[in-house]
Design a protein around this nucleic acid. Structure first.
Length: 548
RNA sequence: GCGCCCGUAGCUCAACUGGAUAGAGCAACUGCCUUCUAAGCAGUAGGUUCCAGGUUCGAGUCCUGGCGGGCGUACCA
């Protein structure tokens, strides 16, 4: 990324500022942006306006001084203009655009990859649903966000591992085992009630039925619920893994909370806290002095029953992750967990870790809209929609897309009816359609002799052609931006621009022509666009079909 | 009560972290298929960016105070 035109321009501006005698300490961070309005050029900076106050001069006059001492590469930059209140606008040369287009055509499947996170090891923990039931729509946003952010980070050069953290002990799992036993016995004709607060979902009955066909009812008189718990866990985890696979999510590891008890990691955390005077006994429980870190109340680490609350293993777990040598650990949390992570960070600080190495992405809840009405869900009650059911209805691509298309920190309305309308109302098809359309044309170009290895790209002069090239060149930056913010929807916004840029080009400029040279130039532009769309959809985990 | 998030077109949401005339998609209206995929394109209409102050060359974006919604505020996860 060192030799990009942007970095060259920044350097040139920096130099010019020094030349005109701006003291080093008042030089701001030079920021280049792409103007919304194309008539304002291809890149723009507002340094002159930022300096107006320090230098006590008219911003336009400062801009003029900067431009006068600015040395830009005439092969890449056609014009430098001052506009508005003091913006300095840069216009790129066509030659630059064609050179860059050529490099897209060379890189194809790797175009858009950067090295900004090269050498970084990142662990991203997500989904992390306990095995008490199938994954529901509620987990979907977490799963897809986590996986897509992982893919984004991989595209910027990082080495990313995906981990699923779970707990198969405790009250919830006990209830699950008891619920399974009840169903099992019911299937054998006994009259047994589900336990209070038991799991009512039909999947429990399915597990019971399957088991019965295997074991013939030999667990009827088992006096321990352990086999029921284990059977339920295995069956449910199998289903969860299958669902994830269907969503194109491949975990690198599953981490059982229990190992933190066995290894003594939890005890060590408490010991260290005590040694530092940040843990104490009160009312039979062990407390963490979170008031030392700005909280209103201290927090219970170990209940008077002797059972730790989930915060304690959480702290030990994060320490474990950092011990494994990751530069960065990312957690994907729903908004309901928002209150827990400050404690984890405080705990890590006490243990001597740098909390900066943990990043928490909090996303807001999903409202599922069915028949125009919001649909309330709960795993324990039977009224939930599983991810599998959702994918059965709207397909895998649409499912991933809908979870990604909004900023993580706004509420997401998932309207099943809209997602199902496999037509113009569905934005995912717009991207796939543009891609398929290009391939359809390229197949025809192939019949007419194919694309030239050395296309005459300078034949591309139509405004729609130039605009499309510029959009394609923005791809690596869009990936970088989405990765930096951990917000996949930014990439979707970009891909929409890309697809609509193509369709404008498609309508303005015919590709299949007698003029073979022009056909090849345009064909190559279309091919470059297909490559960008395919790469972008790949990052989102959405297919890029060649025919529709 | 306190903490976090949100409030932008009729609806669902963007807006490159402070930039130039706030943009898309649905829905509405008007055009465009003997020519490469009409799952498309071009156009019209739609806005006091919740309200009131403040910061500055410049605010949807930052600060303060309200109003409205979501989530949390457990010896539940």
């Amino acid at each position: 990324m060192e030799n990009t035109i942007e970095s060259a321009l920044k350097q040139a501006i920096q130099n010019a500022l020094t030349v005109i005698g701006v003291p080093e300490e008042s030089i701001p961070d030079i920021h280049l942006e792409t103007p919304r309005d194309p008539s304002h050029g291809d890149a723009s900076t507002s340094v002159a306006m930022q300096l107006a106050r320090v230098l006590k001069k008219n911003p336009r006059a400062i801009a003029q001084e900067i431009v006068d001492s600015l040395e830009t590469d005439p092969a890449r930059v056609d014009a430098v203009e001052i506009a508005g209140p003091g913006f300095i606008n840069f216009r790129y040369s066509n030659r630059y655009l064609f050179d860059e287009l050529q490099s897209i055509l060379q890189d194809k499947t790797t175009y858009g990859r950067t090295h900004s996170r090269k050498g970084q090891r990142i662990l991203i923990e997500f989904v992390s649903a306990n095995p008490t039931g199938p994954l529901t729509v509620g987990h979907g946003r977490n799963a897809v966000l986590g996986d897509t952010i992982a893919r984004l980070l991989e595209w910027t050069g990082a080495n990313v591992d995906r981990e699923y953290y779970f707990n198969n002990a405790g009250r919830q799992m006990r209830l699950l085992g008891e619920s399974l036993r009840a169903r099992y016995l019911q299937e054998l004709g006994e009259t047994v009630d589900l336990p209070d607060d038991g799991y009512e979902g039909a999947y429990i009955t399915d597990i019971a039925k399957n088991w019965l066909t295997e074991d013939g009812g030999q667990h009827r008189d088992a006096n321990s619920i352990t086999p029921f718990k284990e059977r339920a866990e295995t069956a449910i985890f199998e289903e969860i893994r299958a669902t994830l696979r269907r969503m194109k999510i491949e975990m690198d590891s599953f981490f059982n909370e229990h190992t933190l008890y066995e290894s003594g990691a939890i005890d060590r955390v408490v010991e260290t806290f005590r040694k530092k005077g940040l843990a104490y006994d009160h009312d039979g429980a062990v407390w963490f002095k979170t008031t030392e870190f700005g909280k209103e109340k201290d927090t219970v680490l170990i209940k008077s029953s002797g059972e730790p609350t989930y915060r304690l293993p959480d702290i030990a777990y994060h320490a474990d992750k950092l011990d494994r040598g990751y530069d960065l650990c990312i957690d994907i949390f729903g908004a309901d967990h928002i209150d827990t992570y400050p404690d984890v960070l405080s705990g890590l600080k006490v243990l001597g870790y740098d909390p900066e190495r943990v990043d928490v992405l909090v996303y807001q809840f999903v409202t599922l809209v069915k028949d125009g009405k919001p649909y309330k869900m709960s795993t324990r009650k039977a009224n939930f929609v599983t991810l599998d059911e959702l994918m059965d209805e709207v397909g895998e691509d649409v499912t991933r897309f809908f979870f990604l298309m909004r900023s993580p920190n706004t509420h997401l309305e998932f309207d099943v009816a809209k997602a199902k309308e496999a037509g113009d109302k569905n934005p995912v098809f717009y991207l796939q359609y543009a891609h398929a359309r290009i391939h359809s044309i390229l197949r025809k170009v192939e019949e007419l002799g194919g694309l030239s290895g050395k296309p005459a790209l300078e034949r591309l002069t139509h405004p729609s052609e130039i605009a499309l090239i510029k959009t394609l060149l923005a791809f690596p930056g869009a990936v970088e931006l989405a990765a930096a913010h951990q917000e996949p929807h930014r990439l979707i916004n970009y891909l929409n621009e890309c697809a609509s840029g193509f369709t404008s080009f498609y309508h303005d400029c015919r590709i299949l022509l007698e003029d073979v040279e022009l056909m090849q130039a345009r064909g190559n532009l279309a091919a470059a666009c297909a490559a960008v769309l395919a790469n972008g959809l790949g990052i989102l985990g959405i297919s890029a079909p060649e025919r529709m």
